[in-house]
C-alpha cells in the first residue's frame, strides 16, 4: 500500500493504482473527469486530457514536482505523492481549455441528440465550459452513417476517445472499424461499407461517451429522461444477462449494460440481450435503476444544470424537428 494526498485528502491505495482511481476511492469532488479512460478497456486513456492533474510532490523519495500536468488516468501513484486537482487553478484552467477544444468542432446538437441527458461531454461542458464560444471558424462535419443495421455513427459528435476501437479489439473477434485519417480529420469508420456485426459489438454504444454511436433501434423514440430505467436480467448463455431496460409504459425502448457511477460498464452484454428482447416479459425485473452522477437522469444533477432551461430549449428544438416523436412533458423524470 502507498499513501497519497489528493487535494489535501490522504488515502492509502494499492501500489500500481492510477491517480484517477485513487481519487475515485476518495470519491466526491476530487475525482477528475474522464472522457477516454475506461477501466475495463486495456490501453484506454491518456488521450482526451480532461483528467489532467498537478503533481506537486512526486514521492517521498523524490519530492520534486512533476514538470507538467499529468493525465491522472494513466499515471500511477507513488508513495508520498501529493496531487492537486480542483485545488489547483492551473488544472482548472487547463481543463477548461480541454473542454473548449472538445467543443469547438462539436455540433452542439444536444437538442436532437439521443445521448442528451446521459452524455459525458454535456455534463463536462456544464461544469467546466465557458458560456460563449470563441470559435468563429467553420465546424468540421461528417455525414451520419449506419455501421451495421443496429448502430448509427454520427461522426460529427465523436471526440476520438478510441474506446469503441478497444471494445472491437478486446471484446469482439473481428474489428472492422477503426480510426482513419490523421489529425483533426481523423474519423471513426469502416473505410469501405462494412457492417459492424458481431456478438458484442453493441457495447460500443455503451462505452461511447457522447452521441457518436447510438442504438438505431432506439433513435428518437424518446428523450432518455422521459424513460423509466429498470434493472433487469435474463438467463443468457453468451453474457451476464444483467441489463438496464429503458421503458415507457410497458414498452422496452432500449436495453443497455449497467453503468457504475463513473458511467462505466462493469459487465458487458451481448447483442441478443441488447437488441432482440424488447418485451418486458423477456426479463426478470429487479426494480428501478438508481442512476447517479454523470447523468441528468439523476435528480442531483438536474438541479445543478438548470434543467428547466435545458428542457425548454430541447423542447423548442424538438418541436421544430417535425416528424419526430414529441415527448410527453409530464412524465416523471427519474425512476
Amino acid at each position: 500500500m502507498v499513501k497519497v494526498t489528493i487535494d489535501g485528502i490522504e488515502i492509502e491505495v494499492a501500489e500500481g493504482t492510477t491517480i484517477l482511481n485513487a481519487a475515485r476511492q476518495i470519491g466526491g469532488d476530487v475525482v477528475p473527469p474522464a472522457m477516454c479512460y475506461y477501466t475495463s478497456l486495456k490501453d484506454s486513456g491518456g488521450k482526451c486530457r480532461v483528467c489532467l492533474v498537478k503533481v506537486t510532490h512526486t514521492s517521498t523519495k523524490d519530492p520534486r514536482p512533476m514538470p507538467k500536468l499529468v493525465a491522472s488516468c494513466r499515471t500511477n501513484v507513488m508513495d508520498g505523492m501529493v496531487i492537486q486537482n480542483i485545488t489547483s487553478p492551473e488544472v482548472l484552467e487547463a481543463r477548461k481549455g480541454v473542454v473548449e477544444f472538445l467543443l469547438i468542432n462539436h455540433p452542439l446538437d444536444c437538442p436532437i441528440c439521443d445521448q442528451a441527458g446521459e452524455c459525458d461531454l454535456q455534463n463536462l461542458a456544464y461544469e467546466h465550459g465557458v458560456a460563449k464560444t470563441r470559435y468563429e471558424e467553420e465546424r468540421r462535419t461528417f455525414e451520419k452513417i449506419d455501421i451495421g443495421d443496429k448502430i448509427k455513427l454520427h461522426m460529427t459528435r465523436c471526440i476520438l476517445c478510441y474506446r469503441c476501437t478497444f471494445v472491437a479489439d478486446q471484446l469482439t473477434d473481428n474489428r472492422v472499424h477503426g480510426i482513419l485519417g490523421r489529425g483533426d480529420t481523423s474519423e471513426i469508420s469502416t473505410y469501405i461499407q462494412k457492417a459492424v456485426d458481431n456478438d458484442f459489438s453493441g457495447n460500443m454504444i455503451d462505452v461511447c461517451p457522447v452521441g457518436a454511436l447510438t442504438d438505431n433501434t432506439f433513435r428518437f423514440k424518446s428523450r432518455v429522461w422521459f424513460t423509466k430505467p429498470l434493472d433487469a436480467h435474463r438467463n443468457c448463455d453468451k453474457c451476464c444477462g444483467k441489463v438496464v431496460l429503458f421503458t415507457k409504459g410497458d414498452e422496452v425502448l432500449r436495453v443497455s449494460a449497467r453503468k457504475d457511477k463513473y458511467a462505466e460498464v462493469t459487465e458487458y452484454i451481448c447483442n441478443e440481450c441488447r437488441y432482440d428482447h424488447k418485451r418486458l416479459s423477456d426479463w426478470v425485473i429487479e426494480g428501478p435503476r438508481h442512476i447517479d452522477r454523470n447523468s441528468v437522469i439523476s435528480q442531483n444533477h438536474y438541479e445543478k444544470i438548470d434543467l428547466l432551461k435545458l428542457k425548454q430549449e430541447i423542447e423548442r428544438q424538438i418541436d421544430f424537428e417535425k416528424g419526430k416523436q414529441l415527448p410527453e412533458p409530464n412524465q416523471s423524470l427519474t425512476a
Partner: peptide
C-alpha cells in the same frame, strides 16, 4: 484501392482495417 489494401492485408496476415488505418494516416 481497397482491393489492393485487402490484398496486402492478406499477404501480411493482418486485418484489412489495420491496413486502412495505416494507409490513411500517412501522406
Amino acid at each position: 484501392s481497397p482491393d489492393v489494401m485487402d490484398y496486402v492485408a492478406g499477404l501480411l496476415a493482418i486485418k484489412p482495417i489495420e491496413v486502412y488505418e495505416v494507409a490513411t494516416f500517412y501522406s
